[in-house]
Simulated scan of single mutants.
Amino acid sequence: MLQPLFRLSIVAFLIGGVVIVLGQALGIILGNAQWVEHVEASAQPATCIAASICGILSFALSYGRPAETIDATVADPLPQQAPAASRS
């Protein structure tokens, strides 16, 4: 149930971020400071809310996954040295 909401929120905040960046870039190119301020003021609240929801849902979804098991047969990352031959 949370997975579709997570996907929707991530799409919403990514689109919001693109709108903010492109809108402000257009305002800079046109040399219109009011445009830059207006884009931020109008798109930022919804984008931040969507990003917050996405973060909370990703945290909740991390608890819904089963724990990964560690295979006991995995080789030791440090190779074992052969025992030194005894000299008699």
Rank of each mutant, 00 (worst) to 15 (best):
N32F: 05
V74C: 03
L22W: 01
P66V: 12
A67C: 10
A41S: 11
V19S: 00
Q3E: 07
G17V: 15
I15M: 13
F13K: 00
P83A: 10
Y63E: 15
I15C: 10
A41M: 09
A51T: 11
T73G: 06
V36C: 01
L26P: 05
I10C: 14
I28P: 05
S62D: 06
V36W: 05
A25S: 12
G16R: 01
V18R: 05
L78I: 11
Q81D: 14
V19Q: 02
S86G: 14
W35P: 05
A46K: 04
Q81K: 09
L30P: 02
S88T: 08
R65K: 04
R65T: 11
E40V: 14
F59E: 06
P79F: 06
P4Y: 03
Y63I: 15
I20H: 01
V74K: 02
V74T: 10
Q80A: 15
A85H: 04
R87P: 01
L78R: 09
A43C: 04
P66G: 07
L5A: 12
N32H: 08
T69I: 12
G55T: 11
Q44C: 11
S86T: 15
L5Y: 06
L2T: 09
L61S: 05
V18S: 05
I56D: 04
S62F: 02
I70L: 12
L22M: 11
G27I: 02
V18F: 01
W35S: 12
Q44D: 13
Q24H: 06
M1P: 03
I10D: 14
L61A: 03
I29E: 06
A33Y: 04
T47D: 02
C54F: 09
Q24L: 08
A82C: 09
T47A: 03
T73E: 11
A12E: 10
V74F: 04
P45F: 00
P45W: 07
A84I: 15
A33S: 08
G16K: 02
I49A: 10
A33T: 14
L14E: 13
V11P: 06
N32C: 08
I28Q: 14
L30Q: 07
L26D: 11
P83K: 05
P77N: 09
V39R: 01
S52W: 02
F13V: 10
G55A: 07
E40K: 15
I70C: 08
R87E: 14
L30F: 00
G17D: 07
A43L: 02
A82R: 08
G23Q: 01
T47L: 03
L14N: 13
P45R: 05
D71I: 08
A41W: 00
L78K: 07
P45G: 04
A25I: 15
